[in-house]
Design a protein around this nucleic acid. Structure first.
Lengths: 146, 146
DNA sequence: TATTGTTATACTCTATAACTATA
DNA sequence: TATAGTTATAGAGTATAACAATA
C-alpha cells in the first residue's frame, strides 16, 4: 500500500495504513494479556453479553467450523462457555466467564487508551470530523457491530 | 468493541470499527485473487520494489522465522523470488515475479477502489476532514510504510 | 428438507529456540 | 562475537466437505 512517487497518498491508502496501525496496537495489547488477536477480538465482542454462533460468525466474518475451533480454544482456557439454547436445541449461546469478562474489558480498555492517546494529536475539530466521518461510513456500509 | 447504550462511540472505538471494515475488504479482495490476506499484504508492500528480510519483517511486524515461511510459500507459488545480496552474502532481497506484480497491483487497485466507493457517501468536506485526520495520525504515530 | 453446529482434513500463519553461514 | 536468515517444532487460525441432531 505504499506508493512510489513520494507525493500525497490517497484517502483509501490512508485508511489501509490506519488499519495496519490499529491492528498492530490490538495485536500488541492482546499479547500483553496472553491472548491471540482473534481470541481478544472474540472476548471484546462478547463483553456486551452472550451471543449465538450465527451472529458471532457473521460479526467475526468466520466460517462456522472456524468459529467452532475458536470457541473450543477459549472454552478450554476457561474464558467462555457454551450454553444450549432451550428454545432451539440445535443452537447454543456463547457467554464469557468472569475471567473472560475481565480480560475482554482489560484489552478493550487498553486498546482504546492507546488509540485515544494517538488521537490526542488531533485538534478537537479534526477529532470530531474523524468521528463523524466514521459514523457516516459505518452507517452506510452496514458495518457489523464490532 | 461494541457499546451497549446506542449513544455515540468514542474516537478510539471508531478507529477500531473502521479498521475491521478495512480488514474485511482487504480479506475479501485477497480471496478473490486466490491469495491469503498475508500474502496479499506482502505483494502490496513489494509492489514498490524489492526489499530485504529485515525491513520486510519490521514492516509486517513479523518474527524472522514467520517471514521465512511466508516468503517460502509465495516463492513456491511463483509470486516472489529471493535474491542473494552480493555485498553481504548472509542477506537477501525479495522481489516480485511478473505474476506477483500483477496480483499485487490488482489487489491494491481493487481494495482502494472499494474503499473509495465507501468514502463516496461522505460529502467533500467530510472526506477531506477524514483524510486530513488520518494523515495527521499517521504522521504522528511513526506509521510504517505499508 | 432445511438449519445449527461439529468433525475430519489440509493448509496457512505465527512464535520460540536452536542452528548455519557470513561479517 | 554479532548478525541475517533457516530449520525444527508446536500451536492457533482458517476453509471445504461430510456429518449429526434438531426443526
Amino acid at each position: 500500500m505504499t506508493e512510489a512517487t513520494g507525493s500525497a497518498i490517497t484517502g483509501a491508502e490512508a485508511l489501509v495504513r490506519l488499519s495496519s496501525t490499529v491492528d498492530r496496537v490490538f495485536g500488541d495489547v492482546s499479547r500483553e494479556y496472553g491472548l491471540t488477536p482473534q481470541q481478544a477480538r472474540l472476548l471484546c465482542i462478547l463483553s456486551t453479553g452472550p451471543m449465538g454462533m450465527g451472529d458471532l460468525g457473521r460479526t467475526l466474518n468466520l466460517e462456522k467450523s472456524s468459529l467452532t475451533g475458536l470457541i473450543d480454544r477459549v472454552e478450554r482456557r476457561g474464558l467462555a462457555a457454551r450454553e444450549r439454547d432451550q428454545r432451539d436445541r440445535r443452537a447454543c449461546r456463547i457467554g464469557l466467564t468472569e475471567e473472560g469478562k475481565r480480560l475482554g474489558w482489560a484489552v478493550h480498555h487498553e486498546v482504546c487508551g492507546q488509540l485515544e492517546r494517538m488521537t490526542a494529536v488531533l485538534d478537537s475539530a479534526q477529532r470530531s470530523a474523524l468521528e463523524a466521518a466514521v459514523h457516516r461510513l459505518l452507517a452506510e456500509s452496514g458495518a457489523a457491530t464490532s
